[in-house]
Nucleic acid binder design. Sequence first.
DNA 1: CCGAGACAATATGTCCGAGTAAATAGAAGA
DNA 2: TCTTCTATTTACTCGGACATATTGTCTCGG
Lengths: 244, 244
Amino acid sequence: MSNADAVKTKKPRGTGRRLHGAIAHKLGVAILSGEFAPGDILSGEVAFSEALDVSRSAYREAVQVLTAKGLVESRPKAGTRVLPRSRWNLLDPEVLAWAFAGEPDITFIRSLFELRGIIEPAAAALAAERRTRDDLKAMKEALAGMSRHSLATDAGRAADRDFHDAILRATRNDALMVLSASIGAAVTWTTQFKLRARILPRNPIPDHRAVLDAIAAGDAAAASEAMRLLVDQALDDTQTSMAQ
Amino acid sequence: MSNADAVKTKKPRGTGRRLHGAIAHKLGVAILSGEFAPGDILSGEVAFSEALDVSRSAYREAVQVLTAKGLVESRPKAGTRVLPRSRWNLLDPEVLAWAFAGEPDITFIRSLFELRGIIEPAAAALAAERRTRDDLKAMKEALAGMSRHSLATDAGRAADRDFHDAILRATRNDALMVLSASIGAAVTWTTQFKLRARILPRNPIPDHRAVLDAIAAGDAAAASEAMRLLVDQALDDTQTSMAQ
DNA sequence: CCGAGACAATATGTCCGAGTAAATAGAAGA
DNA sequence: TCTTCTATTTACTCGGACATATTGTCTCGG
């Protein structure tokens, strides 16, 4: 009975995740924040696993996660190398979460909004053509949720996400629906930025209702335009809140 | 009596990948092809690892990869469950590869083209405004490569990918550049479909040149329109080749 | 007869140590 | 100087053991 083991009874429950998930989170945030730059080498499985106080198995499984998301690549003798940013799956919801865990790059946020400005108006147009009664029902419920709760609450932000999600689902396009998670994350985190900067976003209900009305009417062009306005205003709010 | 071990000298080098990568590939294809449907449970780590003739560590690392891509979720006692399709990271290059490994869903291919039809014209417009001299040079070289080699060759398809990739890079938008891998994959595999169906795609050079010229001229509207035509024609070719 | 709480069974999660294979750096030779 | 070979370093794979958490069941009480 090694008495040294008795001291080691600490439970490294850093997050609520599984252990390897927590390790992946830690490493992912470190990479996204630039602590480990592309080209850097995380050499030494044993060294890192010991430094993080986990077994090599847990560390390796964490590295597999990072590899699956295109953040690193590991080869014998060469070690585990951080890949260039172009290989990162930046639209992966988890990677996105890591990117926003630190202080996110303003340029990157603008990129996300530019993507929203491309995807969502087009999606709204498609939704106007293809939406079913159930889709409209989901949108209305989400909008009602936004009316009940402020965007300052989790419930309000969830309703906002649900609204945009319902539109993307109404496009009946799997590839677009996948982007829902990414775009939803962008919506949520940018909203939190505004709050962090003590900026109260203007009342979003009218803009959202305009989109809903156009989709319900089956007017693709109007839906696209209404959504474009909505995204533009959200970008304005975000930029002013980051400027200060 | 370990003489049975001596027989076990076989090298299960299924693919060129690492072992856990090969397992992940096998499981990923099985899931994408519908062999394992959402909700199905891959219960029994030991059973699966033995069935695949690999250690439990290798199997677990493979499952971590699938988990990272949103294909499965595993919990103690409950087993490893295949997640609903909406949770899959269908735009992940590796997942896309698994989707095209079997016989891909026509609906899904149409979804990808719809996404291209949204992204690429908008990207071309942005590229027209932001392209540098180096960007134009890359596009010209890619176009030259397409002229030299037919799309029936790997080199030709690579040049095609390079062309679209250069445009997305010229947008100076990280979020759009990430989609490059996905869209590039869609371009490559759909081109191969046409070949498999003995359909010779029409000469793609003029269409591509039109896009390049508009971007070089800095005419965003023209670039967008030219790209829209290009994608539409590619979709036409693909649909006719799949119809037969 | 039905519901709530305790309990045990089971599958995943974690850890350990050894041995294998591969890729790069260095040494030896041409 | 260039090529080839060796040798070391590093990731990769394996098998086993223990810990942990969830779930289904069983019992007890209403």
